[in-house]
Design a protein around this nucleic acid. Structure first.
Lengths: 185, 185
DNA sequence: AATAACATGTAGCATGTGCTACATAATTTG
DNA sequence: CAAATTATGTAGCACATGCTACATGTTATT
């Protein structure tokens, strides 16, 4: 790998860190550059324009996120256990920044094409992860239940962003009740 | 009500419409003004600054949303029925713009203080609405189940923004299975 | 060592944005 | 009707942003 390639990767890494902490709003070239100790001039030396920079950074973030997910893989679990497990994970400091950024990506993807692709990609990573992490009685239940868990957990991510911790706790409790007995029927 | 108050309300109404269609990204004073047939100069004549304008518009949107929710109220339903009902509602054209905007509000609220308050407010409207729309066997189940429904439906909103219709359908199906039998235990 | 390729700094342009200053038309009010 | 208040236009400022031009140092290649 050429030296410039290495430098490029270092820049991307630093930018990814910045975006995870600060979100996508305060990410002008000058801000980014200042935060990682370089200049806007340099960023445009290593990337053809801002769009390429952002795409590359977000792809890196998506990749990191995927490996984070993989590192959190355990034995397949039943619906209830998996839900509780994911609810805990969602609140972990190492996951939260990624989930926040993902939320922002989804929200922005409706009006900014650049973000849609990556948001979808991360969406698929999540869904696939859940699909494999789920232990089901009948195989035909797997995909629907995974999608259901996915939605519920994403709802928790959203509530977490609003700092509605109480609602999450209560919500998980609700999920438990609704899935143990026939409480909801 | 003074004439200028009326005009102010008309402007707010038009701006609310614009925001619901175009989101919060392309909402510079000049854009807003052009879209509703006036000038940035006029907007700053009726509002002290952009922040006040946005706050007022978003409050109006929140109020509209609340009355939309009220108009969708029906007899209290059991968990499963309510989930299916809400899943339908989420996709309705008259609701979708509000949900999209709400998603954007939540995503931005982590980095922009202005939006946090309104996002929380709408959050509470939703939750309260669900709480009352739910029919439970035991009263102690109400709040947890409401929070659970809330999270799941918000997850659907998020998936809807990504145009993952298939996942929503599948997810609802999963919710059905998990709440009817002991599939998940 | 000479030359080419790359790295980095300084300055600036074009555009967009929130907002203001100053002026004039329109309307209300005494 | 005169005066005061309100509405609206035009111009522009100050700042941020993506990006470019030009120059100069720095490293690599022959």
């Amino acid at each position: 790998m050429h030296k410039s390639e290495i430098k490029r990767q270092q820049l991307l890494d630093a930018i990814a860190d910045y975006l995870l902490v600060n979100g996508l709003q305060d990410s002008s070239l000058r801000h980014l550059a200042a935060a990682i100790g370089t200049s806007d001039r340099m960023l445009l030396h290593y990337f053809v324009n801002k769009e390429e920079l952002m795409t590359a950074s977000l792809n890196l973030i998506a990749a990191r996120m995927l490996s984070l997910l993989e590192s959190a893989r355990a034995q397949p679990m039943r619906l209830q256990t998996l839900l509780a497990y994911l609810t805990e994970i969602v609140k972990e400091p190492r996951f939260r920044p990624y989930l926040r950024l993902w939320l922002e990506l989804v929200a922005l993807s409706t009006s900014m094409d650049v973000y849609r692709l990556i948001a979808r990609q991360i969406c698929n990573s999540f869904y696939n992860w859940i699909t494999l992490a789920l232990e089901v009685g009948q195989e035909e239940d797997r995909e629907p239940l995974a999608a259901f868990i996915f939605a519920t957990v994403e709802g928790f991510v959203l509530l977490d962003a609003l700092e509605c911790g109480a609602l999450i706790t209560s919500g998980l409790q609700g999920a438990m009740r609704s899935t143990t007995s026939s409480a909801g029927v």
